[in-house]
Design a protein around this nucleic acid. Sequence first.
DNA 1: CTGCCTGCAAAGGATTTGCACTCAT
DNA 2: ATGAGTGCAAATCCTTTGCAGGCAG
Lengths: 162, 162
Amino acid sequence: MPETGAHHLRPGDSQRVAGAVARLRSAGERVTPARYAVLRVLDAADVSDEHLTAEQIGTRVAEAEPSVHRATVYRTLTSLVEARVVSHVHLGGSATVYHLEVERPSAATAHSHAHVQCSSCGRVIDVPHDTFDPVATRLHDELGFRLDTSHAALLGTCSDCG
Amino acid sequence: MPETGAHHLRPGDSQRVAGAVARLRSAGERVTPARYAVLRVLDAADVSDEHLTAEQIGTRVAEAEPSVHRATVYRTLTSLVEARVVSHVHLGGSATVYHLEVERPSAATAHSHAHVQCSSCGRVIDVPHDTFDPVATRLHDELGFRLDTSHAALLGTCSDCG
DNA sequence: CTGCCTGCAAAGGATTTGCACTCAT
DNA sequence: ATGAGTGCAAATCCTTTGCAGGCAG
């Protein structure tokens, strides 16, 4: 009764996890239980619109799969980002949060949304990617600076904390 | 031969250092050698358009005034920021940089410039504060989010690294 | 004088690394 | 079978903190 390498797949695993695994594999990376665990945590967070730090991911992975070491989570995140299966956003509060990358195995084209964070409650808000277009255009024209709107978040105050 | 409290002033100290000291004092904070040292380092950095992290400031202070302990530099920066004599910007790379605040002892009104950082060479570029106005307006209208353009930097690629 | 600020040293928390072993391929 | 990935533990790095003494106001 031969198994084909998908031994880690689980019933609950979403389309996105499956897709991420596929891209991971095609990137020449190995698919291990630890990596599955991280991907599942990220998938669940995405569903509930959460943005998790490496440490939070580590904690959740530890809950789901105690055998996965924290250090491995860090290494895994690095690999996943490198393989473009996961992307990260630097928040103003100097934390970095991760989330599953939806498509696009190739490089450049920033498709994802931009983020702003409330310095009061810490909430991260996704904003349409074209919000920053005017700024991006101006920076490019005046300074030759190519803005990457999805790689860092700006701070401010949200309506709840206003 | 009575001295009036300016015992720490030095010939080389710029107008800005003097102003910072004045505001510091009027904020009810004490003016100590350590605080002078930090202010001088920040002033020198501003002149050369540098943006220094707490650690870099610590190093430069150590060079100029070896007797000032690193821990004091951290505490000093906290105090100076609180007293609005110094402001800090969170860079995308998850470092925080400090610089002298030019005027405005009062709160709110963001006057200072915004920043963008090159993810390739790390250079921090000051941009006119109105650059982000279109975005700020849109975020405010659509989400009730009040953007603080000077508190965090966005990432991108500068013309040199283009 | 009074207590804010400091130096010192030790604690702290998050991330990284060396090493030997394991398992995905 | 072979080396990428892992667990473990120790090392690092940056920053914070408790405490006693010192200096600004």
